[in-house]
Structure formats: C-alpha cells, structure tokens
Design a protein around this nucleic acid. Structure first.
Lengths: 182, 182
DNA sequence: GTTGGCATGTAATCCGTTACATGATTAC
DNA sequence: GTAATCATGTAACGGATTACATGCCAAC
C-alpha cells in the first residue's frame, strides 16, 4: 500500500461536518482537531484541489464581483469510500511528540537550576491554559451538539487531551517541587 | 532572534555524554531521546559537519584501511557557550503531537464500532510496550548511572514519559469499555 | 555463508510553515 | 479610520524521512 498523507483524509472527513470551504475547514480545525492535527492554509487549498482532481470531492464555484470566487466543496461517493478505506487501515506506529522542554531539561546539568525552573513554570502556565480550553470545548459540545452522531467521538478525543494534559500538569508541579527542594 | 534548529543542539549536547561519533550519537538518541526527539542519520551527519563549520565542534579523522574514515567529534568552548545560550532561550510554544488514532476516532461515525475497537486495542498494546520500555530505562539509569550529573534530569524526562503514557493507557482502557457498553 | 552490528554518508522526496499577495465587509 | 474577520490562493523555504551506496567484522 502506498504511503498515504493523513492530512488529505482529515480534510476529506471535515467535508462531512458541515464545512464546505477552505476557510470554514480551517476554522473547524483550529477549534477541534488542533490538539492532535494542525493544518495550515498552505496545505488546505492545494489539498482541496487535489481531492477534486482525484474525484473524491466536487467543487461549485460561484463567481463574485470584486471578490475571489467562492468555492464550495462536497464529498463524492468515491470520496466516502476512500475515507472509509483509510479509516480501516491499521495504525502503524504510535506518535512521538517533539518536546523542546524535555530536550532542554535533558541537558540541564549544563545550566543553572533557575533557568530550568523558569522553563517549567512557563510551561505549566501554558499547559493549564490548554486544559481550560479543552474543558470549554467539552462544555460546548455537551450543550450544543450532543445529538450529533459525531459528538460521542469528539468527546473521546477531548478526553484524551484532558487526561494527558492533566498528567503533564502533575508532572510539572511535581518536578518544580523536586528541583526546589533537591 | 533567528529561528534555530533544535536538533542541532540535541546533537551538540550529546557530544558531552560520551558520544563522539555519528553512530554512537544515533544509538544514544534511540535509547534516550527517542520519546521526545527522534533524529535520523540523514540529519546527524550533515549537522555534525555543520557544527565543525560553525566552530562549535572539532573533528579528529582517523584514516583506516578499507574502511571509511573514523571521525571523532568534540565540543569546543564556543560550542559549550552556544549550548548554554540555547538552553536559556525561552520556549515559545508547547508541542502538539500528531495522532493518527485520534484523527481516525474523530471520524468514526463513518465506520463500524468494531474497526474503532480494533484500532484502540492495537494502540493499547503498543503503548503498554512503550511504558515497559520506560521502566527498563529507568531501572538502568538507577543502577548504572545514578552518580552522573545528568542522571537526575534524565529521570525527569522519563517521568514525563511514564506519566503521560500511563494516562493514555487509562484512556484506552476506559474508551474501549465505553464503546463496548454504549 | 549469511545475518546483524559497526560505520559513514548522499540524494530524492515529502510534508508543512511562513511570508506574501489581494480585497471586501463589519464593528468599534 | 482602522482593526478584525471573511476569503482564496502561491512560492520559497526548512526540516525530516527514506532509499540508496559502500564495506568490514563477528557470530551462528
């Protein structure tokens, strides 16, 4: 099986969630996929074009005066099949995140303890923000979208985010204490 | 400040841990950095060359009969300063891992529950293996390297790995149960 | 005799970010 | 008037993977 670009399927899949333009896809990504799949405009527009070329989506272009054409994309039956096929392909390897903080801590015997503590403190702040974001999104789904078929799975991915983020918060707090005491 | 390639500093830093060849650096990475910073030979050799060009490392080349030259790299004082400067630069953003499993779960309303469960089960297996790896490394550090100045920080990065991995294990188990029941 | 580890390297390719380019409309 | 949001796109660049190329030595 040829190596597949997962981002292509992310965008294809989003066409089924009420998003039909590059712009609205980007918004949806920033709101929902962002914590496990970031995508930029530099990818979205070329991929949408490619989806049409491959027959996985169609596009309706509306010409507008003094504005760029408005383009609306819709998944084709062939696209639906491609998405399902991709959903079934096994996951080869579990991901490894690149973590600049850990890399810096790994070499921290070369620097003052204060610097390490500063990094940790700032990280903790950001990671707490992220946790709060997850809680807001969760609340929003529960209030507005709980009837949607996707909602169950969206909450599952959020739960992943919350659990792992919480673990990081605890690690941060614990490590800060350790460094201060030791 | 110009955008810096962190991998460069990962390799520079490893020169202080008893690794002096491209090959041994790769081994060290696979054993210790792998869970938060992967590096391939395709990066290591060119970067080592670049470090020498920039005066951050020196190289001693030993010609060998019928073998490629053996090259040993050592950090220069300028390299040490560069490493310390990098260690002090603030961390701009917390990382986002790309997670194929979450991406597939996000669109799981398009597929059978069985497929989702299969993905989860296989993921759980792999993630448990990873957890065990972390425990072995931890044990090894505690037994053989606990006197080394770096050891404390290496254990900290491992603790991060263990805590987040454990959170993922729990999420997996919980999600599998949820899908089976619901 | 062949597999696996030791050892160094390059080139093609892929994936993704960033900067750039353009311009309308709406809210403050 | 000016900032933010709506809206679409391209080109240059950078980072990383992968496949390829080479060849020794030791163990089974």
């Amino acid at each position: 099986m040829a190596k597949e670009n997962h981002t292509k399927y992310a965008i294809l899949g989003l066409l089924t969630t009420g998003c039909h333009s590059g712009y609205s896809i980007k918004q949806m990504i920033d709101e929902s996929l962002n914590h496990f799949w970031k995508v930029s405009y530099g990818q979205i527009y070329p991929i949408l074009k490619q989806l049409v070329d491959d027959g996985l989506a169609t596009v309706q272009t509306t010409s507008q005066d003094r504005k760029p054409d408005k383009k609306e994309y819709y998944m084709t039956p062939k696209g639906k099949l491609a998405l399902q096929a991709w959903l079934q392909t096994p996951i080869k390897d579990i991901p490894t995140e690149k973590n600049e903080l850990l890399l810096k801590l790994f070499f921290s015997s070369h620097q003052s303890k204060t610097t390490a503590l500063n990094h940790l403190t700032q990280y903790l702040e950001k990671i707490r923000e992220r946790y709060n974001t997850f809680e807001s999104i969760e609340q929003m789904i529960n209030e507005n979208l709980s009837d949607q078929a996707d909602a169950q799975f969206w909450l599952i991915t959020l739960d992943y985010g919350k659990r792992t983020t919480k673990a990081v918060i605890e690690w941060c707090e614990c490590t800060i204490k350790k460094l201060k005491d030791g």
